[in-house]
Simulated assay, not measured.
Amino acid sequence: MNVEEYIHSLFTKDDAILEKVLESIHANGMRNISVPPEIGKLLTLLVKISGAKEILEIGALGGYSGICLVRGLREEGHLTSLELKEEYAQLAHENLQRAGFGDRVTYYTGEALKSLDQLEKNEKRFNFIFIDADKENYPNYLDRSIRLANPGALIVGDNVLQRGQVCDATYVDLRTENMRAFNQRMANDPDLESIILPVGQGLSIGRVKESK
């Protein structure tokens, strides 16, 4: 048993709702790139700890992470989720409705950067932001996220270690270079206090400073 299997065995249990999400993703011919169960549980825990009322999710897929995020919300809390493809957003919404959260989520479809610009124009602000979309745009998503974040908000990014590729200088493709830039910004931005947890494929957690 490796470390990931050990963590999984201790802290994750069978979850019929999330299993149905994975089945729906497979049935619709989508790649199963949802967060693993231990990351899902961590997201729920982080939302609860933060006391967030307004969550922004960049990348909905089939709704797996969306359910995990809403499970941590206060009763009056709301999730805003961005998804490139209309059919993916529809599936995600159907899955959140089955989970009893259909009225607690709003979806924006199309290019995430355009949706983020629209949210900023509308003066929306968030207490928790989860980034799990196309890796090439992670630095751009972080820029927008900092502008949309309330002081004290958490900004969380998934897949930031890229199976260790970010640590290997021989990987010089655009995806890996942009992820390195994202990690550097998370580590050094004066508005953030951040760390990377080596769980799953790496999860970065940054807190926006109160003085932002």
Rank of each mutant, 00 (worst) to 15 (best):
E94L: 15
Q118G: 08
N137L: 10
L154S: 05
E94Q: 15
Q90G: 14
I131E: 03
G110K: 01
K121I: 10
L154G: 07
G110E: 03
Q90E: 15
L161N: 05
S145R: 13
E123G: 03
K121H: 12
K121R: 13
D143R: 15
R104T: 04
L116W: 07
N150R: 14
R98H: 15
Q162T: 05
V160Y: 08
D134H: 09
F130Q: 04
E136Q: 08
R104S: 06
E123S: 13
E123T: 11
P139S: 03
L116T: 01
H93K: 15
K135W: 01
L113S: 13
R144T: 04
A112S: 12
T109W: 08
L91D: 09
Q90P: 11
E94P: 00
G110I: 02
L148H: 11
G100C: 05
Y108T: 01
N159F: 07
R147N: 15
Y108S: 10
Y138Q: 00
A112R: 06
L116I: 04
N122C: 09
V160I: 02
Y141D: 01
D132Y: 00
A153I: 09
D103E: 14
R125M: 09
L113I: 14
I129V: 07
A99Y: 10
A149C: 07
D103V: 04
Y107Q: 08
D134T: 13
I155E: 11
N137T: 07
D158I: 03
G152E: 08
N127H: 15
K124C: 14
V105P: 02
G110M: 05
T109L: 09
S115R: 07
Y141I: 08
R147S: 15
L96A: 00
P139I: 06
T106F: 00
E123R: 13
A99C: 08
A92Q: 01
L148A: 07
V156W: 06
G100A: 07
P139T: 04
Y107T: 06
Y108M: 11
Q90D: 15
A99E: 04
D103T: 12
V105R: 05
A99G: 03
I155W: 03
N150F: 05
A112C: 11
V156H: 08
A99L: 02
A89H: 00
D117A: 15
A133T: 11
K114I: 11
L161P: 00
Q118D: 13
N95W: 00
D117V: 14
A89I: 07
A89Y: 12
D134S: 10
P139C: 06
E111I: 12
N137C: 07
L142E: 06
H93Q: 15
L148E: 09
G102L: 10
A153K: 05
P151A: 14
R125H: 10
L154Y: 12
L142N: 10
N95D: 00
G152A: 09
H93D: 10
P139R: 03
P151H: 11
A89V: 05
G152M: 11
